[in-house]
């Protein structure tokens, strides 16, 4: 019975795979050239890197909702009742500690660089947040603690929603300035995007860090 079910699954998935390949090969008509549209409007987006312009200006609504999704995971994880939390166990590994002493400051520098360079080259809030979260994990592994003790999970909550709150605030601000929600006035767009990205970096780094067990 089990073998028959397995064979049915394999056969079905083979059919699905062939159909998908057929669909991919036989896409009808040329796809709309969005790259051209983006580069045409790049001048009024406030940044010169097309990917950042799409993420935080042209399709900022998508990114806003993504940040909201990113908030759900740590909040649900925090709502789960846990038995005794695992005690932090500092390692005495001198290699790890020496590595952390060199790598953590470098990672902080790299995160700031990635955040700022996002306006003109590859980089941005998501990359900076990933590097920042990585630095926190390394610090935790080497020293047994990373965030300061007064920053308890409850007190982390304002920081956790900072990115989303700034995003919404800037969106409403651009509405008040005569545009529409998240439609930044071109003169202010560069500053607004930098403000949003700075908040996002902190919030996303904390969210990614809290996903870690």
């Amino acid at each position: 019975m089990r073998v028959v079910a397995h064979r049915l699954i394999v056969a079905g998935c083979t059919v699905v795979g062939l159909a998908l390949v057929y669909a991919v090969v036989n896409v009808q008509g040329p796809a709309p050239d969005l790259a051209l549209a983006v580069s045409g409007a790049l001048a009024e987006s406030g940044v010169s890197h097309p990917v950042t312009a799409v993420l935080l200006n042209f399709r900022a609504y998508d990114t806003l909702l993504e940040v909201a999704v990113m908030l759900v995971a740590p909040l649900v994880a925090a709502a789960l009742p846990t038995t005794a939390p695992a005690p932090a166990k500092p390692t005495n590994d001198p290699v790890l500690q020496a590595l952390a002493a060199v790598a953590v400051p470098l990672a902080l520098l790299l995160a700031i660089y990635l955040l700022l360079i996002g306006a003109s080259r590859s980089g941005g809030a998501f990359h900076a947040a990933a590097v920042l979260a990585g630095a926190l994990v390394l610090l935790q592994l080497a020293t047994g603690r990373s965030l300061p003790a007064w920053l308890t999970p409850t007190r982390q909550q304002p920081l956790l929603i900072l990115g989303l709150a700034l995003f919404c605030a800037v969106g409403w601000l651009s509405l008040l300035l005569g545009g529409y929600f998240l439609g930044y006035p071109p003169a202010w767009a560069g500053v607004m995007i930098l403000v949003i990205e700075s908040g996002l970096t902190l919030s996303l780094a904390l969210a990614l860090w809290r996903l870690m067990p």
């Binding site: 998501f126 990359h127 996903l211």
Partner: peptide
Amino acid sequence: DVALAEAAIGAGLTGALLLD
């Protein structure tokens, strides 16, 4: 951009979570 994010988040972070 995608390559950087994939290496850091897709491989690194997800990999660490799954390893744990």
